[in-house]
Simulated assay, not measured.
Amino acid sequence: MTSITDHPINRRWAAADSSILQLYSFPTPNGVKVSIMLEEIGLPYEAHLVTLSDADVRSPEFLALNPNNKIPAIIDPYGPDGETVSLFESGAILIYLAEKSGKLIGATPAEKYEAIQWVMFQMGGVGPMLGQLGYFTKFAGSEIEDPRPRERYQNEAKRLLAVLEKQLEGRDWITGSYSIADIAIAPWLNALEYYQTKELVGWTDLPNVNAYLERFLARPAVQKGINTPSRPEA
């Protein structure tokens, strides 16, 4: 088994305990998916703060772990067959941790693929659309005078939220039971406050989604994982 300490990333973010899973992340909607999942399943891990600056995510050490220069990423010293596993892409990491632990991915094959289906819904739709809406509302994109980009993402965000509103009718969680689907989706719903886009997407007209996010944020594992690793002090 190759040791974590042999990986180039260890030169910049050294593992204090190389026998446990290492998380390299920042508390963004994508980043906290993994820390929340790790807290939910109770797997020991060590969190390393990787800021979104080029100095971190484009460093040779981080690129050796994720050539796509995005957080989060993990190294697990005890993967399948006892081999070290390194992974990037939050959705892939959620599925890996669910299968490793046997938790939060359903009790049957059908339930497993239903959960994965909704993870993909977030990865391909909710995350990109809400993120782009945030960009064209709060960040540099807000300076663009042409209203069409923001309107495009606003309309698509509203459509996706309507899908969730319908799916949550009469159920507490996306697939009925709490799963990786919820850990993928809910952090992006929570980000609407930060992006200042709640009014744009008609948040008050989504009672099921509102109650769902409140349930999610009330979970102890979520409350800890959503702030892991801690942001640097201003």
Results as ranks from 00 to 15, higher is better:
Gln196Arg: 14
Glu199Phe: 03
Asp17Glu: 15
Asp17Ser: 07
Arg12Trp: 06
Glu46Trp: 09
Arg159Met: 04
Ala211Trp: 05
Leu213Glu: 04
Gly131Ala: 07
Val126Gly: 01
Leu133Lys: 06
Trp118Gln: 00
Glu61Gln: 12
Ile226Phe: 14
Val126His: 08
Pro27Asn: 08
Phe216Thr: 01
Gln22Met: 12
Ser179Gly: 07
Glu99Ala: 10
Glu169Tyr: 01
Gln154Trp: 04
Ser177Gly: 05
Leu104Phe: 12
Gly141Asp: 07
Pro27Trp: 13
Glu169Gln: 10
Ile93Asn: 09
Thr28Asp: 09
Ile144Gln: 13
Gly91Cys: 10
Ala47Thr: 03
Pro77Arg: 10
Ala211Cys: 04
Pro29Gly: 12
Ala115Lys: 02
Gln122Ser: 07
Leu97Asp: 06
Leu133Val: 04
Gly125Trp: 03
Phe26Gln: 04
Glu83Thr: 04
Ala64Tyr: 03
Arg171Trp: 03
Arg219Gly: 08
Ile41Tyr: 04
Ala92Met: 13
Glu46Tyr: 07
Ala191Thr: 09
Met129Ala: 13
Ala115Phe: 01
Asp146Met: 06
Lys70Gly: 07
Arg219His: 09
Met120Glu: 08
Asn227Ala: 15
Ile180Gln: 05
Ile20Val: 15
Glu114Tyr: 08
Asp17His: 12
Ala73Thr: 08
Thr84Trp: 00
Lys138Phe: 06
Trp173His: 01
Tyr78Pro: 02
Tyr212Met: 00
Val85Ile: 14
Val119Ile: 09
Ile74His: 11
Ala16Phe: 04
Thr84Ala: 13
Glu114Pro: 06
Ile105Val: 09
Gly31Phe: 06
Lys100Leu: 13
Ala47Glu: 01
Gly42Arg: 11
Glu151Arg: 14
Tyr194Pro: 06
Asp17Val: 11
Glu145Leu: 12
Pro29Cys: 12
Val57Ile: 14
Pro72Ser: 02
Gly125Asp: 07
Asn69Gln: 14
Met1Thr: 15
Ser142His: 06
Gly79Ala: 12
Tyr153Ala: 08
Pro44Leu: 00
Leu213Pro: 01
Ser177Trp: 09
Thr175Ser: 02
Asn208Met: 07
Ala98Thr: 01
Asp172Ala: 15
Val34Gly: 15
Asp146Ile: 05
Ile41Gly: 07
Arg152Met: 07
Gln117Asn: 13
Phe88Ala: 14
Val32Gln: 15
Asn30Ser: 13
Arg58His: 15
Gly31Leu: 09
Lys112Arg: 14
Ala92Asn: 12
Pro67Trp: 12
Leu192Ile: 08
Ala64Val: 06
Ile174Arg: 00
Gly125Lys: 11
Ala55Leu: 11
Pro29Ala: 08
Ser179Trp: 06
Thr228Asp: 03
Arg150Gly: 14
Ile93Asp: 08
Ile36Glu: 05
Gln154Tyr: 04
Val222His: 01
Leu133Pro: 02
Gly134Cys: 12
Val222Glu: 10
Val119Thr: 02
Ser19Gly: 13
Val85Arg: 11
Ile144Met: 11
Lys224Thr: 09
Gly170Asn: 11
Gln196Trp: 05
Pro229His: 01
Asn210Tyr: 13
Thr51Gln: 11
Pro80Gln: 00
Gly141Gln: 10
Val126Ser: 05
Gly225Arg: 02
Gln22Arg: 07
Leu52His: 05
Tyr96Ser: 09
Phe88Val: 07
Glu40Phe: 01
Leu168Tyr: 00
His48Pro: 03
Leu164Tyr: 03
Glu193Ala: 15
Val163Arg: 01
